[in-house]
Design a protein around this nucleic acid. Structure first.
Lengths: 211, 211
DNA sequence: CCTCCGATCGAACGTTCGTTCGAATTTGTT
DNA sequence: AACAAATTCGAACGAACGTTCGATCGGAGG
């Protein structure tokens, strides 16, 4: 179904080294951008020869494909888990934001690559990731709809969700884990509060600068 | 002062053709991304030979530099004009959002290039644009501070401003002028309302899908 | 008419890119 | 120990990149 062959060599050692390679590629992609990043840089980061990369993936595009595929799958799985047992619509949306920010903290480079290179892949690989991405968007969109089950219009909730993703996907542009004195949980709570109630009635945090 | 020579040839015809070239470059950059875009594509888009480009700019980096410089300067000038005569802090912030979105509508490719290629330039050219960008951010940040002159903390207003820019800078990812049945003014009003009062009490728009 | 100078371009340069290939090396199994 | 398969890598390929250079064009001033 997918555009890229997924079931080939299947020893645990092979998979493990491929994951290691994908992590190295994510670091280089997030630092340089996909187009500027070179396979030679990735080989250096992964401590493998240039030609050695092609034993684990078919090419540069497939590196990006797997990074994005795994990341969006993990976001979706985490979202479902985060919503378990929570009924209140406001808390459910807060859990979704918390899940996204937690993933960001654990896989910063991968999330950055997903946000920045949304339109980089082409053909079937693009459609594959796009399907996953749409599922994630729709899942969050449904949570937004639940906030105003009767009053809200479809367009209104759709626009609000798009802007929520704007906040989430722009995160990597200003968040610096080295400098921030605010925990990711607090930042997620602030973002959820800003989206739900606006800045005017938004709970603020301590007084240290984040950046 | 700037890193790039600005006062050279100065006939009106020369300046006009350079502006035409910069517009063509912005179209190609916004479509392909800076790194993937080639000088040959830009030459084709501008209807000039490849070598002809170098009569108007020193190289590829300078194309991006001028695009970003002019765009941020225009954003800043427009912001000052938009605030004239407006006293109410909420209306002032709404005017700032409106100014940004209006600029987006008038110079879609340039705004996209500014949002996407924020970390592309290097050295003095990067610092030049960064200064302008900081000025724009601080101007909006001050408007946000005015919303809660006594209660808000510096960090709280800074984080809110960063998230506001997330909404604004992510705009190009989902807004499609061909499909949208909502005017840019309405979208700007919705974004300002979302930031000020949150989704719960956010005024919604009509019922047509934007995308 | 001739001269000069900005404007324009075809052709080429050196570099870097993603990818390939065949040989060498390591690993796992009898 | 001996063989097969998996893994690794140096070297090279063709293509595309940004940039340069010298020649040509075209209009304004003497």
């Amino acid at each position: 179904m997918g555009s890229i062959d997924t079931a080939r060599k299947r020893t645990p050692a092979f998979d493990s080294k491929r994951i290691h390679l994908l992590a190295a590629a994510a670091r280089v992609f997030s630092e340089e951008g996909y187009d500027k990043a070179s396979m030679r840089q990735i080989a250096g980061e992964a401590q493998v020869s240039l030609a050695g990369i092609y034993h684990y993936v078919a090419g540069k595009e497939e590196l990006l494909y797997w990074i994005q595929f795994h990341t969006f799958e993990s976001l979706l799985r985490g979202l479902e888990k985060s919503l378990e047992g929570i009924e209140d619509p406001r808390q459910r949306l807060g859990a979704a934001v918390g899940n996204h920010i937690r993933h960001f903290g654990d896989n910063m480079q991968e999330l950055k690559v997903c946000a920045r290179e949304l339109e980089t892949l082409e053909g079937d690989a693009y459609e594959d990731v796009r399907r996953l991405r749409r599922s994630y968007f729709e899942a969050v969109h449904n949570l937004v709809k639940e906030l105003q089950p009767q009053r809200g219009t479809h367009l209104g909730s759709w626009l609000a969700t798009a802007n929520l993703f704007g906040m989430l996907n722009w995160f990597y542009q200003w968040y610096d884990p080295e400098r921030s004195r605010v925990s990711l949980d607090d930042l997620a709570a602030q973002q959820a509060s800003l989206f739900l109630d606006g800045y005017t009635s938004c709970n603020s945090i301590g007084d240290d600068r984040g950046n």
